[in-house]
């Protein structure tokens, strides 16, 4: 309910406010466990990627995002779960494994935070660990333009050309 409403809202923002190009979403399996790995250049990335994918994404999100009651409530309602980025977080990995066992799609940004430079220069091991442990395929999703729409120090979302591609 909350996820669907938020998704439609973000889709509306994407259509009205940005020029969006989406490519390769036909490659996303409709059912089964799946690990989405994305590059991360802006706070908008999980919302925009989630809005164009045909399935619900259960994002692994930094635990600091859960510190405020309102955002904690919202994130949990849309299926997100916290991860401690400072050290190996067994609890978070177990949650991710359980979501995969339930045949969900788990979304991870394996760079461990936003990176404006070339994507995927160094990766944390969580996504590969989950793939091997659960035998789940990995779907790479590349997004660009959100760093122009909402830069690191930006307060307002600006119109920008957004490209979202799913890898083969």
């Amino acid at each position: 309910m909350i996820y669907g409403t938020a998704k439609r809202l973000v889709q509306t923002v994407l259509r009205l406010y940005h020029r969006v190009e989406v490519e390769g979403m036909e490659r996303v399996p409709e059912v089964g466990s799946l690990i989405l790995v994305g590059n991360h250049v802006s706070y908008l990335d999980p919302f925009y990627i989630g809005a164009v994918l045909p399935r619900k994404v259960h994002y692994m999100a930094k635990k600091e995002s859960f510190s405020r009651p309102w955002t904690c409530w919202f994130l949990r309602r849309v299926g997100a779960f916290p991860v401690n980025r400072e050290k190996p977080d067994i609890r978070s990995l177990k949650t991710a494994l359980n979501r995969l066992k339930e045949k969900n799609m788990v979304g991870i940004f394996p760079e461990g935070g936003r990176r404006e430079e070339d994507p995927m220069q160094s990766l944390k091991n969580g996504a590969t660990y989950l793939a091997l442990k659960e035998g789940a395929p990995i779907l790479p999703v590349y997004i660009e333009g959100t760093d122009k729409a909402l830069p690191r120090q930006g307060k307002w979302i600006r119109p920008a050309r957004i490209r979202i591609r799913s890898g083969s």
Binding site: V37, P119, N125, A127, T128
Partner: peptide
Amino acid sequence: EEQERISRDIVDSFHRMA
């Protein structure tokens, strides 16, 4: 080795898309 192979595939895939 398998983790490293998957990581390489992820990086290659992103560089192709970029």
